[in-house]
Amino acid sequence: MKKSDSYEEFIKGIWRDNPVFVQVLGMCPMLAVTNSAINAVAMGMATFFVLVGSSFLVSSFRNWIPKQVRISCFIIIIATFVTVADYTLLALVPKVHKELGAFIPLIVANCMILGRQEAFSSRYPVRLAVMDAIGMAGGFLLALFSLGAIREILGDGALFGIKLFGENFEPWVIMILPPGGFLTLGVILLFFNWFKFKKDEFLAEVAEAERGGG
């Protein structure tokens, strides 16, 4: 039973409650840094590290943090992890850090992260909080990667900088410009909503058939 609980917390972030495609949170980095797959993955990894680290700490100290100052404490914890991520990226991969620019410090302001602390980590035990954070951050990483990959393939004819098509491919430049981010995100959201609609319809049909059969 316990095992299925943490699995449930993990999988809901990846798919059912995906922070980007379903909750539509964290749109700022989502649109800004997904002009190539590598940037999207770097941003996703940084966010992953910050979210999982913060959730672990917030959940561990949830009984010591007075609720009057909880938001300030969450922000201190998140900001510390963001600074660590910022310097680590600057030291290890300066090129990627240069591309991501101001968006690394802005992870502090990603509403998805503070939202998870307030809604989940501060109320649940460490194991569940970490599973929830891994799920949510994984879902965010997945969403960033799919957007980054689609935009890079269409807009640059490449994936992770490796050219996929021949010389004759004319890059669809608008896809790596800001409008391309909105277009791609719009199409993906459309797909997710269509899928949900179809699923509900299917479930309703099944329920109808069961009632008829019974």
Binding site: I65, C73, I76
Partner: peptide, 10 residues
């Protein structure tokens, strides 16, 4: 104290 300790550790 809570905020001060959190700030110090951070």
């Amino acid at each position: 104290l809570t905020l001060a300790i959190a700030g110090l550790i951070s």
